[in-house]
């Protein structure tokens, strides 16, 4: 991301000076407009894609729909902006979109330097390597001198260089722009190794004609906590985004699903469930929403686990196990603060 930091920072500075006076609040803007503008990826298996009717679908897309449901009461009131790795931050900083949900890694410099607020981690990922079995490599430590297909403008580019430097190995990068391009180059033997987030590797491998001829090496060389983000300077809006995500996670912990949410709201004895679904207390009002915002969101897209299984889980072609993304009670890292 190094190249993009200066222009984005400049842009953010412009935005900060010109917007500071004008920004009444993103929430009011969204409500006045009647639609949420959400930036997603231009296409990443499981995370954002279009179906045959031209509707956006996916794990990242579901989050946008949940926020729209919570804020506007209508999960379909979203205007999706497909963004690339290069345009995503400027689109958010310039105010062209209200929220960015595009498998974006939470890093220090993006948080502090680019002036964004990350709303939590929707998916714990890590960078891995895929090679052809015929290469006879079983560990990333044997990759000295390899040609590596690597997506530009991403954290994976920097991780790769860090890892090879730390291991005292050399490599030849082959820069690619999109996942599609990377896969094509890898299959055409233009590079020996394809590296990107492990979820992306699994998704790509699932589509190969002979998936068994390719292995994903055991080394995971980076932490890639992916999550949605908003601009600095509007804490209320950030709280809304953060708690919609948390509500989806709490709903999974408590066993609330899209199907039983109404029933749970009416009959549950669990005080946290009642607070979450707006059956008791004035919780939603504190962030400027209706008290049943979480109920509406969960009814629209389901809880965290439902969304995961629908787009990424083992029943899909992406075929990812929950792993780190299981809720904390089941040995994963997904742990939402209490709703009280």
């Amino acid at each position: 991301m190094k190249k993009m930091i200066l222009p984005v920072a400049l842009g953010a500075a412009f935005a900060a000076t010109s917007l500071s006076a004008a920004t009444a609040g993103t929430l009011e803007d969204v409500q006045e407009r009647g639609t949420l503008r959400c930036a997603v990826s231009t296409g990443l298996a499981g995370f954002s894609y279009t179906d045959e009717n031209g509707k956006w679908q996916g794990f990242d897309v579901d989050y946008c729909r949940a926020v729209a449901a919570a804020v506007l009461g209508d999960a379909d009131a979203v205007e999706f902006s497909p963004t690339t790795g290069k345009t995503r931050f400027t689109a958010l900083a310039s105010g062209e979109v209200d929220i960015l949900s595009r498998n974006t890694t939470w890093t220090y410099s993006r948080d502090a330097d680019l002036k964004f607020t990350f709303l939590g981690v929707s998916y714990y990922d890590g960078q891995g390597f895929m090679v052809k079995k015929s290469l006879g490599v079983t560990s990333a430590k044997e990759l000295d001198g390899a040609t590596v297909c690597i997506q530009t403008g991403t954290t994976t580019e920097l991780n790769l260089s860090d890892y090879f430097t730390a291991e005292g190995m050399s490599y030849e990068p082959l820069s690619i722009e999109t996942n599609t391009e990377g896969r094509a180059n890898y299959l055409a033997d233009a590079c020996d190794v394809y590296t990107t987030d492990a979820s992306g590797l699994a998704a790509s491998r699932a589509t190969f004609e002979n998936a068994a001829d390719h292995i994903i090496l055991p080394e995971i060389i980076s932490k890639e906590p992916l999550g949605p983000l908003v601009r600095h300077g509007d804490d209320q809006w950030a709280d809304i985004g953060r708690w919609v995500l948390n509500a989806m996670k709490i709903a999974e912990e408590k066993g609330i699903t899209a199907a039983n949410a109404d029933e749970m709201a009416a009959t549950s004895k669990d005080p946290e469930v009642k607070r979450l679904l707006g059956a008791s207390g004035e919780m939603g009002a504190a962030i400027g929403l209706n008290n049943d915002f979480a109920l509406v969101a969960i009814k629209a897209v389901g809880n965290y686990g439902e969304s995961f299984e629908r787009h990424l889980g083992t029943q899909t072609k992406v075929n990812l196990a929950r792993g780190l993304n299981a809720v904390w009670t089941e040995g994963g890292l997904q742990y939402a603060p209490p709703f009280r």
Binding site: S41, T42, G43, L44, A45, G46, F47, S48, Y49, T50, D51, W56, Q57, G58, S81, P82, T83, T84, K86, T87, A91, T178, N179, T180, R183, A184, A203, A206, T207, F208, E209, T316, K317, V318
Partner: peptide, 26 residues
């Protein structure tokens, strides 16, 4: 224009490929 995320015919390739039913067709 696909570089700035507009969905011209080439830009539409990516979201189509990301659909798991068509993932891998190029």
């Amino acid at each position: 224009v696909l570089i700035i995320g507009l969905m011209d015919p080439l830009g539409l390739v990516a979201p189509t490929l990301a659909d798991q039913r068509w993932n891998g067709i190029v």
